[in-house]
Amino acid sequence: MAACITKELSCPGCGAVNKSHMWIEIDASADPEQRERMLDETLFFWECPDCNYQAQMVYPCLYHDKERGLLICLSPSGRTQQVIEAEQRHPGLAGLKKRLVLSPAELKEKVMIFESGLNDVALEMVKLALQELTESKQQTRVDRTFFLTMSEELDYLGFSMFLRGEEKPVYQGVRLEVYEKSLRAAERVDFQESGFQLVDLALARTLLEQ
């Protein structure tokens, strides 16, 4: 079941102190409600009951999906100690895919990737290539890129991209054959499933350089 703790928070807007629930561990099969809240981006949302100040709370959270053999550690600071504690809480980790993410948005994306049956290493390679192409065409920096959707019927992978200085994302898509080529590349590189892995654009760049 999902593990919840209660903490007192001081509102940055009005200074009022109120109790708030924090979900520090989520079991996808045992508590689908919290999984849905994570996916619709309300799980980490906080609103002050006194002045209605709104903010996103970002705190360590462990997400596990037994059906897919997946364990994701959200550690905003990337602290090793939080990863160690996650390992200690779940000693029987053999055979699981273990991922480290740094933000709620990355947690949501990682869950969507694996629930779509995709390889996240290969998908990061696709994102890297798409981001470099977009930067070349737009003549601006891409700050973040997120996986959005996959459709076998439409032969399509969709992504949202946040350009430097822009609040609203632009949307880009590629054909599934681009992912399939990246998957073959990912299978040829030396990537070992051991411990909590930070699978991101930096890793994709390193593996492609091999």
Rank of each mutant, 00 (worst) to 15 (best):
R68T: 08
F196P: 00
P91C: 10
S182P: 00
Y179H: 03
C73K: 13
L203C: 07
Y59C: 04
K110G: 01
E152L: 11
A129G: 13
V121N: 02
I26H: 05
F45L: 10
V189Q: 10
Q138A: 15
Q82W: 12
E8H: 05
D27L: 06
L74W: 07
Q54T: 13
G158W: 01
G117F: 04
L96R: 10
K7V: 15
S10C: 11
V174Y: 00
E8Q: 13
Q210N: 07
E109M: 10
Q56K: 13
E85Q: 14
I84R: 12
L154Y: 11
S194C: 02
K108P: 00
R188W: 04
R164G: 02
A186S: 14
R184I: 08
K108H: 04
A2I: 03
S116I: 00
D143T: 05
H64C: 01
S103L: 10
N52S: 12
A129D: 13
G158H: 03
R184D: 11
Y179S: 07
P76R: 06
R164K: 14
E85C: 03
A2K: 09
E209V: 03
Q138V: 15
Y59K: 07
G173W: 01
G69Q: 07
L9Q: 04
D200W: 08
G173K: 05
E106K: 13
C61D: 02
N52W: 11
W23H: 13
S160M: 06
P104H: 05
E153D: 12
E166T: 08
G95F: 08
E193A: 09
F146M: 05
L208G: 01
L163S: 06
E180M: 02
L102P: 05
A202G: 03
Q54W: 00
Q138D: 10
